[in-house]
């Protein structure tokens, strides 16, 4: 399977995605936020840097909001990583969250992790699991992660191959199980080690995620019984209607119903706690966004200094978040963020 970009698909273009979202005839998200006193949406602080180190990935997932894949060549250079490090030094952020693509495929990934780790920041790596077993050069990643006390967040949409492979590709479940065993073997997810292994659930289709706590219990039971696998927490994340997932919704004729579902599930409590209020998202080329979704829609921050080269903490901390109809995905039900539910 190729990325939408490689296919020349119209929804590879961010403008076309935004046009489709705005044409859906929904109550504008900004108007909805206004009704609960959250417009304009202000930021609280800058606690988390979420850095997308490139769109290259060994997988081509059906729901990927990045449109990542082996054919994507956008990759963060060591020079841009250095500017990231300099910017981080100007803030009191406590967490750096590395994502991609498969972040481990960036040739300077390990160097970057070492620099971040030396700063004493909590570092999260969004590891797709299969990269660990994809090639011999990645087999030592569990040891590397352990050495730097990296927190791992890994997608696993279900505890069987049917649902997992439908979303993430043929054979992904079996490889993910192998990788999880390797992470468990060095202590990840095991009681008393302090090595955190969190799993991420996204629905494999046009429906909302289940209750996070119940699902976590179910995952723990099934993965322990079936595969002797342990993990810490499960994050239930809603699929946002952009990029490949948007393309799936349109092709499967689920788009209108899904958007209606998101709007009807709007939860003011979740809206008040969305992740963009304490996070800044950095693109592979150093541009700044309110979140990884806005990054993929190329909606840069509404503040002076839209690039790391012009990093202006004060301007970023007093910015208004750019909103659009895809934001309904973060405010539906119990809410959704890169750390799971928020309400």
């Amino acid at each position: 399977m190729k990325s939408l970009l490689k296919q020349g698909h119209s929804l590879a273009e961010s403008d076309r995605q935004i046009q489709l979202l705005e044409q859906a005839g929904l109550t504008r998200f900004s108007d909805k936020m206004d009704t609960v006193g959250l417009f304009p949406l202000t930021t609280n602080s800058l606690d988390i840097f979420q850095i997308n180190v490139g769109k290259m990935c060994n997988q081509v997932c059906e729901h990927c909001h990045v449109d990542a894949g082996p054919d994507r060549k956008e990759i963060m250079t060591r020079g841009t990583m250095q500017i990231c490090l300099d910017a981080i030094d100007k803030t009191n952020c406590h967490t750096v969250d590395l994502t991609g693509g498969a972040p481990e495929m960036n040739p300077d990934f390990r160097w970057f992790v070492e620099q971040l780790s030396a700063k004493g920041k909590k570092v999260i790596v969004r590891c797709n699991l299969t990269i660990i077993v994809a090639n011999k050069k990645y087999h030592d990643l569990p040891e590397f992660f352990k050495k730097h006390n990296i927190e791992i967040a890994s997608s696993l949409p279900y505890f069987n191959s049917a649902k997992t492979d439908a979303q993430r590709g043929e054979g992904v479940f079996e490889k993910s199980i192998r990788a999880l065993k390797m992470l468990n073997a060095v202590g990840y997810g095991m009681e008393g080690t302090g090595l955190i292994l969190n799993l991420v659930y996204n629905p494999s289709g046009a429906f909302l995620p289940p209750d996070q706590d119940s699902l976590q219990n179910q995952f723990k039971r099934k993965l322990r019984q079936g595969f002797k696998i342990e993990f810490n927490n499960l994050f239930a994340i809603t699929n946002l209607p952009i990029s490949r997932y948007l393309s799936y919704l349109v092709a499967s004729k689920n788009y209108d119903k899904y958007m209606e579902k998101l709007v009807n599930a709007f939860n003011p409590m979740a809206a008040a706690s969305v992740m963009c209020r304490n996070t800044i998202s950095v693109g592979w080329n150093g541009f700044l966004y309110d979140c990884d979704f806005n990054q993929m829609l190329e909606l840069k921050v509404a503040a002076k200094g839209q690039h790391l080269n012009d990093f202006d903490l004060e301007a970023l901390q007093s910015r208004h978040v750019i909103l659009n109809e895809h934001c309904y995905g973060c405010t539906a039900g119990a809410g959704s963020s890169c750390g799971g539910t928020v309400a």
């Binding site: 629905p203 429906f207 289940p210």
Partner: peptide
């Protein structure tokens, strides 16, 4: 059907 899927049930 939809509700069961949103409760984490599989086919």
């Amino acid at each position: 059907t939809e509700d069961a899927m949103e409760k984490g049930c599989d086919s």
